[in-house]
Design a protein around this nucleic acid. Structure first.
Lengths: 152, 152
DNA sequence: GCATTTCTCTAGTAATTTAATAGGCTAATA
DNA sequence: TATTAGCCTATTAAATTACTAGAGAAATGC
């Protein structure tokens, strides 16, 4: 399950995506609009900024804005930033690979091979879904009318 | 990520799968063989028993055994039993559906539709992979030589 | 340059979950 | 009836999650 942190982050980002190109948005606006605890949201947005997803501006007229277009920010990178790796086991994580302690041979481990498949299809979806698609509520490719398909 | 509980459970079950048809296996055997804390493993196996995946026998000559063949126990039901729902959001969980508090309209929620897709492909893999396939280390269908394919 | 605005950073904390441990109880067997 | 082996409840330590507090620093505008 996603943490509150990731859910809040995704919701705040959809606000920023909808207001993309209209200047900075205040933390307070997102926090009150989406009913997210203000101080908690500060930390979340800071993480997203450190990851390069957001930019900020201080002082009057300041706030947060996306540092790239909503179409080029993937849901995968958002969730990885806020909740860590998508993989169910460290030994199949792209972003945080670590061998399993007790594992004798990774190449023949049955558990690993299944978990790797799960990670592959999961990241295939999440890394290929943009913030833009999230706010559009559409899982259709932009210049295509057929649903997006994934292959193993 | 999977919890230690789920990892220990999966490892213990592969032991039982390999010894399927050869009578009960002692908790102590699994615990020492797989380096799993004995008392912790007791609790894990009890959960799996309550779920109907395992049977037990008390007294001398007792121990645990699978209540069905390794080919008919899915990795999905094992993980759900030990770690809860596979879904990333309660509103897309089959086994533990719960609406999101702040959600106005589930049918048009973009976040939900992506998470539903992820849940679908994940459970498609995990519910269609058996304990038998896990110990065989093969992701090939039994009466087929092509790898198992999933479709959205 | 001073006041105000708004993000930044470090620290702390309460609640929950995870990963166990402890110990007595009950059923089966010999 | 002694022994074996799982059953069950409770407790606990450590880690993680979901926040809160408050001072600090940069930008803006007058």
């Amino acid at each position: 399950m996603l943490s509150m942190k990731a859910k809040y982050g995704l919701r705040a980002l959809t606000v920023l995506a909808r207001r993309y190109g209209q200047g900075p948005v205040l933390i307070s606006d997102m926090s009150s609009g989406e009913k997210i605890p203000h101080k908690f949201l500060e930390l979340i947005l800071l993480d997203l900024k450190r990851q390069g997803i957001l930019q900020s501006k201080k002082g009057k007229g300041g706030g947060y804005l996306l540092s790239k277009s909503p179409g080029s920010i993937s849901v995968g990178e958002i969730i990885r930033t806020l909740d860590g790796p998508l993989a169910l086991l460290p030994c199949v994580s792209q972003s945080a690979y670590r061998p399993c302690e007790e594992c004798i041979d990774e190449t023949t481990c049955g558990i690993r091979s299944v978990m790797k498949e799960v990670r592959d299809v999961t990241s295939n979806i999440l890394d290929n879904t943009s913030l833009q698609q999230l706010v559009d509520g559409s899982r259709f490719a932009p210049d295509d009318t057929r649903p997006v398909m994934y292959h193993i």
